[in-house]
């Protein structure tokens, strides 16, 4: 493939960013544009289909996968600010459409050009510097799909290392799941609560002021638990910090005044 001087990148916004955290979408656009690409946002994108795929509704998942492939296959690259959604395109679409050779082929071609945002910046666009500063200590949660399906671990750390003033303190049990798991967290809430409880305990233990991660699912889960416990740790998507757009309210905080921490409630 001959890559044009300025590659055209289709941004898969992801449904959680679209709904809960538009800032991450804008941060993604800025980071990819700063790296010399043209970013477009296909308007008709909805969802990568994971809720159906992981619930065993293969037919719906296939239909949504075909829609997304048709929408994105004209781009040089597809980037998503989520290891989970990128993993869906990169790893699962070809398997999901394996019973139709034509679509499997299209899925494979798209998979080869689809990337999670931070690994796209680091591995494909060879970004080593970012124009961002962030004073204070942060910790980082590795989302499971990004970590184990896509091998994303060093890339966010490398780019965070380029953020002026930022100090990274690693989590203990960093490779443990936060307990989100899509519908898992509502189907088995007690087990999910245990997992997110362990995760936020590790977050609080670091003493970091901010938790960063690359997936909105994990972030909503962890931010929601920290909020319920009244812990004053801010949660943000890693793209917000890398793009120098981490000045607004953190996830689960309202503008302009940050909420006051509340005491922990027993049993929560």
């Amino acid at each position: 493939m001959t890559t044009p001087a300025r590659p055209r990148v289709g941004l898969l916004v992801t449904c959680l960013v679209d709904l809960f955290r538009p800032e991450v979408g804008f941060a993604s656009v800025k980071l990819i544009e700063d790296a010399g690409c043209i970013v477009e946002v296909p308007r008709d994108q909805t969802c990568c289909g994971q809720p159906a795929y992981n619930s065993g509704d293969k037919a719906t998942a296939q239909e949504l996968a075909r829609n997304l492939i048709a929408l994105f296959e004209g781009y040089d690259y597809v980037a998503a600010p989520s290891g989970s959604c990128a993993g869906m395109l990169k790893v699962h679409f070809p398997a999901l459409l394996a019973d139709d050779p034509l679509w499997e082929n299209r899925a494979r071609r798209l998979a080869a050009r689809s990337f999670e945002l931070v690994s796209f910046l680091h591995d494909v666009l060879r970004v080593t510097k970012v124009a961002a500063a962030h004073a204070g200590t942060v910790t980082y949660h590795d989302g499971c799909s990004g970590l184990r399906e896509l091998g994303i671990k060093g890339q966010p750390r490398a780019l965070l290392g380029a953020v002026e003033g930022l100090a990274l303190k690693e989590l203990s049990a960093a490779e443990s799941c936060c307990g989100f798991g899509g519908l898992f967290c509502v189907k088995y809430p007690e087990i999910s609560n245990r997992m997110v409880g362990d995760k936020v305990a590790a977050v609080i233990d670091t003493g970091a002021a901010t938790l960063l991660a690359g997936d909105m699912g994990c972030l909503l889960n962890i931010a929601g638990k920290l909020s319920r416990l009244g812990a004053a740790v801010h949660c943000r998507h890693v793209a917000e910090v890398l793009a120098g757009m981490a000045n607004g309210p953190a996830i689960g905080q309202s503008a302009p005044a940050a909420k006051a921490p509340r005491p922990a409630r027993p049993g929560s």
Binding site: V17, P22, C185, V186, K187, L220, G224, G252, S254, S268
Partner: peptide, 24 residues
């Protein structure tokens, strides 16, 4: 409809507009 979520954690609220709306 999200009792399994809010029984043990808060639901971070969005700011009110989707990315697609703001992008447009």
């Amino acid at each position: 409809l999200a009792g399994g979520w809010t029984a043990v954690r808060d639901m971070p609220a969005p700011s009110g507009r989707t990315f697609q709306q703001l992008w447009a």
